[in-house]
Design a protein around this nucleic acid. Structure first.
Lengths: 196, 196
DNA sequence: GTCTATAATGGGATAGAC
DNA sequence: GTCTATCCCATTATAGAC
């Protein structure tokens, strides 16, 4: 059958159900039988569509990691000002989280279960991402746009919030995205105090 | 034998090794044999000290959760001002994270594998913690000390950073704690911008 | 309290009929 | 492409010798 049969191909459907289950029960805590059940087939039938259980995790995590890396490279190598770049990085996280919160959650919490070769590539992509973001922050700091602080620590604080966004999206489903974006940027850039 | 034998009792030793392994490989990804190996015994021998694998997770997660809840209740019910309370909550997170980063990491990422009764109690403790923190933030907001914002979202932003601290501690082992505390409070309260 | 042997279960993956 | 039957292995937990 062609993949144009339904709106989503069978493999896509499997990937989506796997992502949901991996997210809530963990990669190790999810069985192929459970995934198969969600898609409406028996466990072994999955092997007509996938190579292994690890392949599911690999596709979900690595696709997301590659997109992230490409997008931040776009921002990093652009001619925008440093503060504009920081603004775009925050927007990037929000966009990718809203589009696919399951993949985001998985990427951040289950990557350790990737098989060794891919795990190496994942870490490389993540490091590349963090280095580019760090350089943006260093530039902003050198230009006096942001306060003097250990740049690693500043990055840690910002990424902590951005990386937890998927949990927020899960709890408050239909939260207004623009409102979220506004509050988030305000909080990260200006803090919560009313008085300087 | 008495538990005064070594510096740590046998059970304590098992708990510590289990915490480290659960943290890096996950609860489901860690076998009793692996824990036993770290302690220097065979898998089944563990059962002379523990009731089950789940008991290990339960002790590690629930102890931490109970301490957290007690400590925030102390802060919440005190007569301190709202901003002072927020300051103490941040310090509380730093203290408990520095003292036992493994337990903190586990509590936040592996609680879903608790057995059903304890999972219910864990969620109750976590909700209690969040509600008390939310009330502190609401008070600060009502007094005009912090900016007007969805209080749930403000709490989410603050807790995102505080709950990720264990990862920071793991990466930069001997980071100066006072410096960390200063930067963290500055970042959360005043943001990263130089200009208001 | 520690060991070896072993039960009991569940899960990933393959074979082969349809 | 889906099914049932099956293999193989890891893992939790127990039994019983020492």
């Amino acid at each position: 059958m062609k993949s144009t049969d339904g709106l989503r191909s069978r493999k896509q459907q499997i990937l989506e159900e796997a992502a949901k289950l991996f997210r809530t029960k963990g990669f190790k805590g999810t069985s192929l039988q459970q995934i198969a059940e969600k898609v409406g087939m028996e466990g072994p039938s999955l092997y007509n569509h996938i190579k292994s259980k690890h392949e599911l995790l690999s596709i979900l995590v690595m696709n997301n990691a590659r997109v992230f890396n490409e997008r931040i490279t776009e921002i990093h190598t652009s001619s925008l000002g440093s503060m504009e770049k920081i603004d775009r990085v925050i927007s990037l996280h929000i966009e990718l989280t809203v589009v696919n919160p399951d993949a985001m959650s998985l990427m951040l919490s289950e990557w350790a279960h990737l098989e060794s070769e891919e795990k190496v590539e994942y870490v490389r992509l993540r490091d590349s991402y963090e280095n580019q973001f760090k350089q943006i922050l260093e530039q902003a700091m050198a230009e006096g746009e942001v306060v003097q602080m250990d740049v690693n620590f500043m990055m840690f604080m910002i990424l902590s919030t951005l990386r937890s966004l998927y949990a927020w999206c899960a709890r408050y489903r239909n939260y207004n995205r623009l409102e979220m974006e506004t509050y988030l940027k305000q909080g990260i850039l200006k803090g919560i105090l009313t008085k300087a």
